[in-house]
Each structure stands twice: as structure tokens, then as C-alpha cells.
Nucleic acid binder design. Structure first.
Length: 567
DNA sequence: CGGCTTTGACCGGCGC
DNA sequence: GCGCCGGTCAAAGCCG
């Protein structure tokens, strides 16, 4: 993502400056012509014209100088951010590898791909799991052997971790992927196989019938992984949100505690795609549609679907980052990790609260149903007026309302009601001024985060003086940089957001369908083909420019909404 | 006629 | 062990 960002800036900057130079050039040409070919008007007139031109030229030059300076400053800031990002990324990789190495791994003779933990390391992974029900199960079922538990735990750990980072774009987290001895040049089909195995979304019946002889597979299948879910709450009149994907309804149920039926959809872009989504209206507020995504797309996504996918992916990786941070609780490596991943502390407390079912942030939650314990992250988009969800000109809504989705579980509150207090000043800088509003929410979210964690707390006093404003701007940028670089999962979210921003600035000719609630239109307003979440150069694909998407028929929608219920 | 939705049946997990 | 509940299946029906 950083490359995209960089490239965009590189392209952006010369453009803006050359644009200015062009203007100046024209003016200069005019004045030169004036000099060479004096018109029939008087010399006085001519002189005053020349003076005027000189003044214009001077002011234009001064302006150009300012713009260049601003560009230099921005470039330097960007470089700083990129350097910090790279450093932190390397440190993150180190930590991840460090996290894997201490487990004394041996190879299962039956399956060389399967790594078994030594029994004395069993305590460690037990702290790592975010969804603790599996653990409870294991504790209950003491009949199972320790080794079997170890295998199970290890499998869950690896799959869960990778999967969460995969969610959406089907990109692999290279650090963990490299552990597996997959051939480097695996085909798309192999990729699909991998994904299908990773996602464990194979129906139970298939699992039952397809049990292989190998005991390892059996172990895997006996205990399917609880998948990370990303729930999106948005105000929407239609029966489903238009997230850019193609879905087929395969079931509908009344769930307990909600009179509205829950509809089950599966992704039909690829026949083997394991991704499911559940759509249900909120019981408290029928205008809110809750869409829950689960699984990983194992196929290229349409452009219009990438934003939602990357957003959910970022959210899921946030959640999993929280879960992984748990493993680092305690002395030793955890100290480093905590230092490096300040956000994780927050995740961890969230995870703790999640475990004790006490975690609640208004309008957001780590939710877990009583029946099954899928770790769920909720993106609360309800602060958007419905019109902004269905409008293609959603960017204008961003600007008008300065309202951005909340990443609820981490309380990285992207809704910026306080954007007016943003210390980003508009110094006529081409980039900042153009994207001030879009960047504003990012900075604001950093502020929220930092405020919560007492990291360089940005106090919001009465409007600061210009000097204070300058200082605040600098300190906020520095603090924001720190926040960005402090946590890789936040970088994922940032990547999604930045992609949207960058996409937004590139002109607006990407027009998908606008059926239902055009969620994708503001998540993905004119997103160009992007490769997000590909640390280390993961899967890369260019989605087709547009794909036909089926939309729920209005009759069906009304039926569903009129309480056409089963069971 | 193919693709999609509807809907009752079925299955498995979980709590009691 | 039983009942509840979430999730899925698959036949029937609908629609373009």
C-alpha cells in the first residue's frame, strides 16, 4: 500500500507543480510577446502592462515557491512515515517469527507440513486464542490426549491467524505462509485449494464424507475453526447492502431475540468461494441493517467489492491483532511487543472485556453470541445518513459530514464529529487542502486512540493561536505517525482508508451498480485496482473493471422485510 | 430453461 | 439425554 501511496504522491506532486508552471509559462509567453511585438497602443500603456505582468509573474513565482516548499515538507513527512512504517513492519515480522520460533516445533511423521508443539509449550498457545470456547471444550474433554490437543491448538493458531488476515482479498500473510512449505509458484487452483482448506467453510456434511485416512486431517475436521466475523451495521432501506459482491440466498431463519428474519447468503462469484454473509435487521432499530461477513474470498474480486473486502479484512486483522497480542502478555517478549504495538494494549483490554462479556462501546462491540463464539468485529456505519450510502457522490458526503465508519471493536472511531478541532491546518498545501477532510478522520481516529491510551494525549483546548496551531499540527502529525507505525493492523485499516482517499482523488469514473444500499460506493468510491494487505508481495490481481451483479428483487426484498419467515 | 428465492426439514453444537 | 438454536440443505416454486 505504501508503494501505491508513494506513487500517487509522486504522480500528484509533479502534476500539481507542472500545472502551476504551465500557468506561469503562459503568462511569461504573453509578456514576452508583448515585449517583442509592441502593439499600436502608447508606450505608457505598454509599460504599465509590463509592470503588471511582472507583478503577476513575481506572485506566481512566489506561489510556486510556496507550493514547492510545501511539497518538500510533505515529501519529507511521507518519507518519515514510510521509514517508520518499514521499520515497524520489520519489527513486526521479527516478532511474528519470534513468536513462532520459541515453540519447539517438531514435524509430524505422518504429515511433514504439520508442526507439533512439544507438550511443555502448551501453556503458551492456550493464552493466544481469542475465541476461548474451543479451549473450554478442550478442557472439558479431558479424554483427548495432550498431543492431540497440541496438534489441534497449533492448527487453530496457524489457520486462524492467517485466515483473519486473509479475509476479503484472499491475500496471504507471508510471515506465516512462509512457514508452510507451499511451492512458491502455486497456481490459482492451488490457491483456491489452500483457501478452501484455510477457511474451513466446507460444509459439515462434506467434512464427514471426505475424511481422509491421515489422522491429522481428521483432527482438523473434528474441530473446525471458529471463524472471525466482521459485522457491518449500516442504515439501509433495501434488503441487503450492495457491497459489490454477488450473493445467492440459501436460507432464512428467525433467530432468537430478533423478530426480523436472518437471511443467509453465499458468494457466487466463484462456485467454490467459501464466503458467507448473514443479513438481518436490527431489532432495536429496523432501519439498521446488520451484515455479517465470514470467510475468505478465494477468487479475484470485482473492484467494487474490494473496498468492502479490504475494510472487513482490516477490521478482522485488527481483531486478530488483538487476539495475538494476548499471547504476548507477561514478561519477556511481551514487553517489546507492548512497546511496539501500543494499540495492542487496547486490543488486549478489549479482548479481556470480550472474554468476560463486559466489553461495550456505544454503537460498537466485540460481540459474541451465546451459542457460538465466533470472534466478531463490528463496523458501525450507522452514523451515515442513508442517502450517503446510496449515493455515488459519497465523497461529498465525507466532506460534508466528515463522517467515516467506526471501527468499533478497537474504538478507532472513524466518525469525526470533532473534525473541526482537527489541528490539520490548510496552508494552501495542494495535498493537505485537497484531502484535508479525508485525512481529517484518520488523524481524528489517531487522536481518539491516543487519547484513550494516554499516548501523547491531544487535549482539545479552545481554538489555539496560530503558533499553537503550528505546534499542534506538527505534534499531531508526529503522534499520528507514531500511531500509524505502532500497529500493523491499524496500518491495514489505514491502507483501506488511504486507498479510498487516493482512489477518490483520481477522478470519478468508476461507477458500479447502485442497488440496495451502495455501501461500496463510499467504501470504494472510485477505487482503482489496488493491492492491499500484501505484505511481502502476496497475491496480486487486477479485478475486472465491472461485473454484472445480481440484486435482490424488490418483491423478494419486500417479502423478506414483511416478515416472510420460516420455522 | 436456467438461475434464483423460498421454505420446511435436517444436522450438529451447546446448555441444562 | 433432551431441547433449543444457529446454520445448511434441497425440493419446489418463481421469474425473466
Amino acid at each position: 500500500m505504501e508503494d501505491d501511496f508513494k506513487e500517487d504522491r509522486r504522480v500528484d506532486d509533479p502534476d500539481s507543480s507542472s500545472h502551476k508552471e504551465e500557468k506561469v509559462g503562459t503568462k511569461r509567453q504573453y509578456s514576452e510577446n508583448d515585449d517583442v511585438k509592441p502593439s499600436s497602443s502608447s508606450k505608457q500603456n505598454n509599460l504599465s502592462h509590463t509592470k503588471q505582468d511582472d507583478q503577476v509573474l513575481e506572485s506566481a513565482r512566489a506561489e510556486m515557491g510556496e507550493v514547492r516548499e510545501e511539497n518538500q515538507r510533505l515529501k519529507m513527512r511521507l518519507d518519515r512515515i514510510m521509514k517508520d512504517y518499514q521499520t515497524l513492519q520489520m519489527q513486526f515480522h521479527d516478532i511474528v517469527q519470534h513468536d513462532h520460533q520459541p515453540k519447539k516445533l517438531t514435524t509430524n511423521p505422518n504429515n511433514p507440513h504439520l508442526e507439533i508443539e512439544e507438550p511443555d509449550q502448551l501453556v503458551s498457545p492456550s493464552l493466544r486464542r481469542f475465541s476461548c470456547d474451543v479451549r473450554k471444550d478442550d478442557e472439558k474433554k479431558k479424554s483427548s490426549s495432550i498431543e492431540k490437543n497440541a496438534i489441534r491448538e497449533d492448527h487453530h493458531e496457524q489457520i486462524d491467524y492467517r485466515d483473519g488476515l486473509n479475509l476479503g482479498l484472499g491475500c496471504k500473510f507471508e510471515a506465516s505462509k512462509s512457514d508452510a512449505s507451499d511451492p512458491p509458484n502455486s497456481s490459482f487452483e492451488e490457491q483456491q485449494k489452500d483457501d478452501a482448506a484455510d477457511t474451513n467453510w466446507i460444509p459439515n456434511k462434506v467434512l464427514k464424507t471426505s475424511k481422509s485416512v491421515g489422522g491429522d486431517d481428521e483432527v482438523l475436521q473434528q474441530n473446525p475453526v471458529k471463524k472471525t466475523r466482521v459485522s457491518v451495521r449500516a442504515r439501509c432501506d433495501a434488503s441487503t447492502m450492495n457491497d459489490g459482491c454477488q450473493w445467492r440466498k440459501y436460507g432464512q431463519k428467525i433467530s432468537k431475540g430478533n423478530p426480523c428474519p436472518r437471511a443467509y447468503y453465499r458468494c457466487t462469484i466463484a462456485p467454490s468461494c467459501p464466503v458467507r454473509k448473514q443479513v438481518q435487521r436490527c431489532a432495536e432499530d429496523m432501519s439498521i441493517l446488520i451484515t455479517t461477513y465470514e470467510g475468505t474470498h478465494n477468487h479475484p474480486l470485482p473492484i467494487s467489492a474490494t473496498a468492502m473486502a479490504s475494510t472487513t479484512s482490516a477490521a478482522a486483522s485488527m481483531l486478530l491483532s488483538g487476539s495475538s497480542s494476548r499471547s504476548q502478555a507477561g514478561p519477556g517478549p511481551s514487553t517489546t511487543a507492548a512497546d511496539l504495538h501500543g494499540l495492542n494494549n487496547y486490543y488486549q483490554s478489549a479482548a479481556d472485556a470480550y472474554k468476560s462479556s463486559q466489553f461495550y462501546i456505544p454503537g460498537s462491540s466485540f460481540s459474541s453470541s451465546s451459542h457460538n463464539s465466533h470472534p466478531t468485529i463490528t463496523l458501525d456505519l450507522t452514523s451515515f445518513p442513508p442517502s450517503s450510502l446510496s449515493s455515488y457522490n459519497s465523497l461529498s458526503h465525507f466532506n460534508r459530514f466528515s463522517s467515516i465508519p467506526k471501527f468499533s471493536s478497537t474504538n478507532l472511531n472513524f466518525s469525526s464529529s470533532e473534525s473541526s478541532t482537527m489541528p490539520w491546518s490548510n496552508n494552501g498545501s495542494s495535498f493537505l487542502s485537497y484531502n484535508r477532510n479525508q485525512i481529517g478522520f484518520l488523524s481524528n481516529s489517531y487522536q481518539n486512540y491516543m487519547h484513550k491510551n494516554n499516548i501523547n494525549p491531544i487535549i482539545r483546548p479552545p481554538p489555539p493561536s496560530p503558533q499553537q496551531q503550528q505546534f499542534l499540527q506538527e505534534s499531531t502529525i508526529a503522534a499520528a505517525t507514531k500511531a500509524i507505525t505502532a500497529d500493523p493492523s491499524f496500518q491495514s485499516a489505514l491502507a483501506a482508508a488511504l486507498t479510498k482517499i487516493i482512489g477518490d482523488t483520481n477522478g470519478a469514473d468508476q461507477r458500479g451498480n447502485n442497488n440496495g444500499c451502495g455501501l461500496t460506493t463510499y467504501l470504494n468510491n472510485n477505487t482503482s485496482s489496488t493491492n492491499l494487505h500484501q505484505p511481502g508481495g502476496g497475491l496480486s490481481f487486477v479485478a475486472p473493471a465491472s461485473l454484472p451483479f445480481s440484486i435482490p428483487r424488490s418483491s423478494a426484498a419486500s417479502k423478506a422485510e414483511n416478515g416472510d419467515q420460516t420455522n
